[in-house]
């Protein structure tokens, strides 16, 4: 038996919004420690890694490890049927071929359940080693989203250049070029607005805007984001989901032809 309950359906909706741009379907691996998902987008350029801890749920039970392959468009249809403040319970029997979503309104006057067929998906797990990154940038997630949106008007790629002075985002194309520089801040009063850089050595890498913009769909999950870069490994964009887990996106860089 698997059963996971969240007081707010809105949180699950935000998690789904954060992955459905990149993935059409995904396998949710459930164990007694929580729910994990690792999947590449169809072009295998980026990878999504989601972790939701068992103790982040209001109720969590997983008697046997279970992999639930879900079509995310179908899951979106079902979650649209919930109000954000409805409680959601996700349930499945061991070896089940379907999953049930139960939505309960705050006053319990309305209870609805939706059953969805599960899919058998090919599991393609990648081994991702622990990496000591050359630089890790912590910044407001809204600012990162704004920068990606603004720069994608100029070109298909963004160059991210991190030095001890700060981080520079650049893009160029037919209409011209754009540069956004962020300096480290020391605003202790508003910690959530700070930009901080842990730098071992300067790094400059080029990334496709399209994927960065998809990653920023996770912005409603967290007011902070971290960007981790090293010269010869993919960028890691991480959003902590408060009290529940995290979502990480990996993006392979572009290289000079």
């Amino acid at each position: 038996m698997f059963e996971a309950r969240l007081v707010s359906s809105g949180t699950l909706k935000k998690v789904l919004d954060a992955i459905k741009d990149l993935l059409n379907e995904a396998s949710f691996d459930c164990s007694d420690t929580g729910i994990q998902l690792q999947a590449m987008d169809s072009s295998h350029v980026s990878l999504v890694s989601l972790s939701l801890r068992a103790d982040g749920f209001d109720k969590y039970r997983c008697d046997r490890n279970l992999t639930m392959g879900m079509n995310l468009a179908s899951m979106t249809k079902i979650l649209k049927c919930a109000n954000n403040d409805d409680t959601v319970t996700v349930k499945a029997q061991d070896d089940a071929d379907c999953v049930t979503f139960v939505f309960e309104s705050k006053k319990q006057e309305k209870i609805s359940d939706y059953e969805m067929k599960l899919m058998n998906l090919d599991q393609e797990h990648l081994g991702i080693p622990e990496t000591d990154f050359s630089c890790v940038i912590h910044m407001p997630s809204g600012e990162f989203s704004r920068i990606c949106r603004d720069l994608s008007q100029f070109g298909e790629s963004v160059i991210i250049s991190c030095t001890k002075e700060g981080v520079r985002f650049s893009s160029s194309g037919d209409i011209g070029s754009a540069n956004i520089k962020l300096a480290q801040t020391n605003n202790i009063d508003k910690e959530e607005e700070t930009v901080s850089i842990d730098l071992q050595e300067p790094v400059t890498l080029t990334f496709a805007c399209q994927y960065l913009n998809s990653f920023t769909k996770a912005t409603p999950l967290s007011n902070r984001v971290s960007l981790s870069m090293s010269a010869n490994v993919p960028l890691v964009v991480e959003y902590e989901i408060p009290d529940l887990g995290h979502i990480r996106y990996y993006l392979a860089p572009k290289i000079e032809e």
């Binding site: 590449m40 070109g155 990996y250 392979a252 000079e256």
Partner: peptide, 14 residues
């Protein structure tokens, strides 16, 4: 704009 690398250029299937 450079050529795009993929996840398999960095990580292996397990």
């Amino acid at each position: 704009n450079g050529s795009q690398l993929g996840m398999s250029d960095y990580y292996v299937l397990i």
